[in-house]
Design a protein around this nucleic acid. Structure first.
Length: 163
DNA sequence: CAACACCAATTGG
DNA sequence: CCAATTGGTGTTG
């Protein structure tokens, strides 16, 4: 589900059913006035998907990220992780001069999946750790992006511990 | 405001 | 392997 404000994309969510998408959006933006726009945003969605082929361009889509100052910093840091690479929570924490738990908590609150690549953050021991929209999706995204065998091996390890 | 619960972690024993 | 500790955030009083 893609949602925008007049400024840009404010949410990009995943779920298994339209109803679940709606309720997730409602949960995240309780105070917002929401309006469905199947056709107009459908075009925008196509554009998002098209630009996935070209990550450099996807980084230029207009985002309207709403969150605390700390969250903004984390989300920006996430966008600087190239496709095919991963970071762990400790590294990001060090980079932001913060701490792992805080970074994880900010990642978990990222409203724009995929474009803000929160899926590229994994645990220090190589396990996939958690994902707001399900570990299966995180694993799939990482596999799709993985460019080298070392990363692939890591992912395979992590997935061995999936339910 | 303060106190508390909730977590997608990490580190050292 | 387990437990102790960690920081930011939303909620509650």
């Amino acid at each position: 589900l893609l949602a925008t404000t007049d400024k840009g994309i404010c949410a990009l969510l995943f779920a298994d059913s339209p109803a679940a998408l709606e309720s997730e959006l409602a949960g995240r933006l309780p105070a917002a006035q929401r309006r469905t726009d199947q056709h107009g945003l459908g075009a925008m969605l196509q554009q998002v998907l098209a630009q996935l082929q070209e990550p450099a361009r996807a980084a230029q889509l207009p985002l309207d990220l709403q969150g605390t100052a700390f969250q903004q910093r984390v989300w920006q840091a996430l966008q600087r992780i190239p496709a095919g690479e991963t970071r762990n929570y400790g590294q990001l924490a060090a980079e932001l001069d913060s701490h792992p738990r805080a970074v994880a908590s900010a990642c978990a609150r990222n409203p724009v999946g995929l474009l803000v690549p929160c899926h590229r953050v994994i645990a220090g021991n190589g396990a996939l750790s958690g994902y707001r929209w399900g570990l299966q999706r995180k694993a799939a995204l990482l596999l799709a992006e993985a460019g080298n065998s070392a990363v692939l091996a890591d992912q395979a390890d992590g997935m061995a511990s999936l339910p």
